[in-house]
Design a protein around this nucleic acid. Structure first.
Lengths: 221, 221
DNA sequence: GTATTCATTATTGTATACAATCAAAAAGGA
DNA sequence: TCCTTTTTGATTGTATACAATAATGAATAC
């Protein structure tokens, strides 16, 4: 069975897990035969993915995985820096031992996946940790926006991340859980802010204006 | 000429201007003949509008204008309360006399439209004032999210607003411009926060659980 | 040998046809 | 008269057909 939602999730996973790298083309007929549905269904999914900024569709040229610009990358991270810490106070009112153990389980799986070299799993779990926290705030509108930003961050790391970093090498997500267990919203906010700023600054933004490379200078001799 | 973008803007305007009230059905063939394109093009637009939460599409039932739930309404306003004031510091670095006069012109048109009873114009201008400010922050990712929230707010006011209020009866948008001209980010943030909270609290959220009305009690005698 | 033009191929854009589903009216029975 | 069942009509879901566009490679002229 291949429902729209299923296809969407499938392609999105492939993108954020870096199976489909930035710039990869997504021909409609190839996808339609892969999923066993007609182009109509594929087009619907591709359009949605483009509105969510995971793919870009150029008129008469088709769809390809978005290659985030530097400014887009920074803006996404800046948005997270602005929003995610602010969600902590609301989040902490819903915090309890049950949630704590649920999230601790996630961090364990994270570390395990990272250790076993399961890059795809690790990336998914890292993003999920952040957006599930956001959902705990109770504001679904903001949470789903943050969720999208987390997925976009995975794509950004595919383009600008350092090789080994799946995202969060700076200290452990478990640290945050320890802080949340103490109940200090302020400390948690600081941790989150620092954490995201660290990711932001770890992006390698080589200022290659790839539109006009100076081949003259590059190949002289 | 009826491009996708054009059709989208056209329908969106009709929704936020309360021409198409919450709950209004949007049959595909009716729209297709209205815009002179096939159902294919209409479906694309409707799908986009549904992802943007302006319409909801029910399987085999078609599309209708979204009737925001109370929680959705509050969450949208809360999101704006959380984000918009935070954009002021970045915004103020780009503030200059040119921008000031541009926005003052907008507030003039706002008041004029309101005075002339041009409800549609007034609603559009009120929303535009907010999201154009957001765009001045320089963060396009956040700005376009705020833009969407502003449009959604217009839809929310259609459902829960007091009759006369097009949105911002509490003091004038011009007040904010005065503050911005002084250069005090802190004051501007406070004003914005207060302004949005006022709108939030002006919503009339009658707790009618219209799913199960107690007809027994309602019609006894 | 190089450059320009033309033709071919692959891919997307748009419309339409048919099947599937739902809602409401009509018919029938108690 | 009221309730159930059936049928009909309208509307959407999905696939396919055809037109339009862009990219690639071949052919010809210089």
């Amino acid at each position: 069975m291949a429902t729209d939602e299923h296809i969407h999730q499938q392609i999105l996973n492939a993108i954020v897990e870096h199976q489909l790298p930035p710039g990869a083309r997504l021909p409609e007929d190839r996808l339609s035969e892969a999923f066993g549905v007609s182009r109509t269904g594929i087009r619907k999914v591709l359009q949605r993915l483009s509105l969510e900024h995971f793919v870009v569709i150029e008129k008469n040229k088709g769809a390809h995985v978005n290659r985030p610009s530097e400014s887009e990358a920074l803006e996404v991270l800046d948005s997270r820096i602005l929003i995610e810490p602010q969600l902590i106070p609301a989040l902490i009112t819903h915090w309890n031992p049950e949630q704590s153990s649920r999230f601790r389980l996630m961090t364990k799986e994270e570390k395990q996946a990272e250790a076993n070299g399961q890059l795809a799993e690790a990336i998914q779990l890292t993003a999920r940790f952040h957006y599930e926290l956001a959902h705990l705030s109770g504001n679904k509108v903001l949470a789903s926006f943050v969720e999208q930003l987390c997925y976009r961050s995975s794509l950004i790391l595919a383009a600008y991340g350092t090789r080994g970093s799946v995202g969060c090498e700076c200290g452990d997500h478990a640290q945050l859980l320890d802080i949340l267990d103490t109940g200090s919203a302020e400390d948690a906010q600081h941790w989150m802010s620092h954490h995201l700023k660290h990711i932001r600054s770890s992006l390698i933004l080589e200022s290659k204006e790839d539109t006009n490379i100076d081949f003259q200078r590059l190949f002289s001799r």
